[in-house]
Design a protein around this nucleic acid. Structure first.
Lengths: 352, 352
DNA sequence: TTTTAGCACTTGAGCTATTTGAGTGCTAAG
DNA sequence: CTTAGCACTCAAATAGCTCAAGTGCTAAAA
């Protein structure tokens, strides 16, 4: 993709573009030259502003809704604003306080913390928020249990070395003896426990089936179960908060589109791919930069958060292109910081 | 509540009311006397129909949107239609086929079947569907396990005699010894296993705390956990399918109302109380008969389904008051039948 | 050369007729 | 009891008008 030529703007043009974006994201109405005279730190007449606006329009940063309307920022205008003109508003103190108090409670799983983060972030922004739990590249299977529950029901439990637990109940053939089960547990413990997950998956599809046949006639079901449990654990990485807020900032949209959007939220693989690039900053994607047709009228503020050896997660806020970017960027930045701190704290308690 | 006086209608008035309801639920537009002349099995002039319509309006079964508009059924009109004028349309063959094929797969839990039913029912109707899993009045706690997972993590597993399993992981104090845990398990098994759930809850709040104190300094957390697991199992009784379909038949509604509705769906206790009376028929509640302000512009078609000794569940469809009642009643009737059959089949496999 | 005042022009939003069509109630004749 | 006929009503669509906010351009002022 060719990088757009960035027109050089004079300082005054920058001030005007900044004022247009601020005013428009605040009010939602196209902004005219007269209205701007009051909002600018410098004193110039509306005629001068009109001239500058014409230049900004020429450069592609603002556009008109119709011949005699005020100007509205274009996607390029937002982009320029976000790249060069946002000011670092300090995050409101009570926002920080709210984050700390809501994340301050005691949680019994990281997933709960990450899920609650999605809700909290959507509450703070009034938009829709996404969170991805930290992914540890080298997580290992650290324990395997089969617990007979009676009635030919058995619960399989997988424990990971990062504290994650996955479980699933299933039925076993009536013909199966309990010492057969024990043999299977021993086999799994010998062969798979202590290995990183990708290796576990690999072995499950190569060596293990042959060995397990000694104890079970039809190991396929049992092995499928294993995959299922691991998949399920993987699926729970992704959380959405404030789904319904989408209704607030998507007025006048075809209900069919809304449905598609909600379906997109529910297919975590798809949406995750849309999200953050893995660099360590707050990032803003505007309109079609999101590279998803359904989201081309929205903006996305994303950031990773770093939990040291336990990997990195991601948080994101989806809102209208005319969102107050300064506030959002500040908020997401603060949030990622608080969340990382909370999770580090959580892991510290777990390990000690 | 006083029973409304039901005006006696002539046969011709019944035909006209029936035609009005049909036409209106089909098209959504108020229906006039002229349009009806073609839709009626008898031949009368529009003037006659006008006279009859005036009588129906007098009786409260239809109303006008404004002085010179056609007629629209009133809630009482729908009620009369549902009570006396629906015809038993045979359910479409491919609807039945679809139900059977979607429910035909193999499921590992009844909850999955009941949840899938909610989705399927919403798909069939294009409305929003609710399902409640069968409740067995006298379900007993049939097993209790504590599985140490390492790292001071323990998983508690409760098994019910109807095959339900609930589980939760939690952390224990580092000071706790494994023989203490074993004692607790023994205590629970001796005192609680084999009892019906309500009694389990009772004892947990009376005798048990004192006894458990022998092994644990602070049993509160542990007992709270127990409640939590049981609550969680209870919360999973209730499923919603086709939430988003609400958007289709709630156009022009305040987004705030929609949010309240979705919140209502998520508080299963509230919504469950709104649903079916426990008689063994397909029931229709129209508008304010639902006795919930948020739902007063909707209709609800509910039915119980009977799984013999394993109790009864419930299914329901929520749609606009102008829904095609004949089709809905037929469909819900067929669905409850198929679902009951599937569950009986499931339990038969489980018990054998 | 840059800024500004002034002015003619454009446009959507809001308002007020006006028309049209679907529908009603009523009356009087069949 | 039914129906044709007619005067009447009302929402929805259409057209015309005004108003406010905005623009671009020109020529004078700085």
């Amino acid at each position: 993709m060719l990088k757009e030529v960035i027109k050089t703007l004079t300082d005054r043009q920058k001030l005007i573009l900044q004022a247009i974006v601020r005013e428009y994201t605040d009010t939602g109405a196209a902004v005219g030259s007269k209205a701007l005279t009051n909002r600018l730190p410098i004193h110039v007449s509306s005629a001068t502003i009109r001239n500058e606006m014409a230049a900004l329009e020429e450069a592609g940063y603002v556009q008109k809704e119709h011949t005699s309307s005020g100007r509205v920022p274009s996607l390029a205008g937002y982009r320029y604003y976000v790249d060069h003109l946002v000011n670092d508003d300090p995050v409101a103190n009570n926002d920080i306080a709210l984050i700390q108090s809501e994340l301050g409670g005691s949680f019994s799983k990281i997933d709960e913390i990450v899920e609650e983060s999605a809700n909290l972030l959507s509450k703070l922004t009034s938009y829709t928020a996404f969170t991805l739990r930290p992914e540890q590249a080298d997580v290992q299977l650290s324990g395997f249990r089969l617990v007979p529950l009676g009635n030919h029901q058995v619960m399989a439990i997988l424990v990971m070395d990062n504290g994650d637990v996955a479980n699933q109940t299933f039925s076993i053939p009536r013909s199966m003896e309990s010492d057969q089960l024990e043999s299977v547990v021993r086999l799994i413990n010998d062969q798979l426990v202590g290995l990183p997950l990708p290796e576990v998956m690999l072995k499950l599809n190569t060596e293990i089936p042959a060995q397990i046949k000694q104890y079970m006639q039809t190991p396929d079901g049992f092995l499928g179960l294993f995959n299922q449990v691991l998949d399920q654990a993987a699926a729970e990485r992704f959380f959405v908060g404030g789904r319904l807020n989408l209704l607030n900032f998507s007025v006048n949209r075809d209900p069919q589109d809304l449905k598609s959007l909600y379906q997109l939220f529910d297919t975590s693989d798809d949406i995750a791919s849309v999200l953050s690039p893995p660099d360590n900053q707050v990032r803003v994607k505007i309109g079609d930069e999101i590279r998803n047709d359904l989201l081309k009228d929205y903006s996305l503020v994303t950031a990773t958060y770093d939990v040291g050896q336990h990997g990195r997660g991601m948080i994101a806020v989806l809102g209208p292109t005319r969102m107050p970017y300064s506030r959002m960027i500040g908020l997401v930045g603060a949030f990622r910081h608080e969340l990382a701190a909370k999770l580090l704290d959580y892991y510290r308690h777990l390990d000690e």
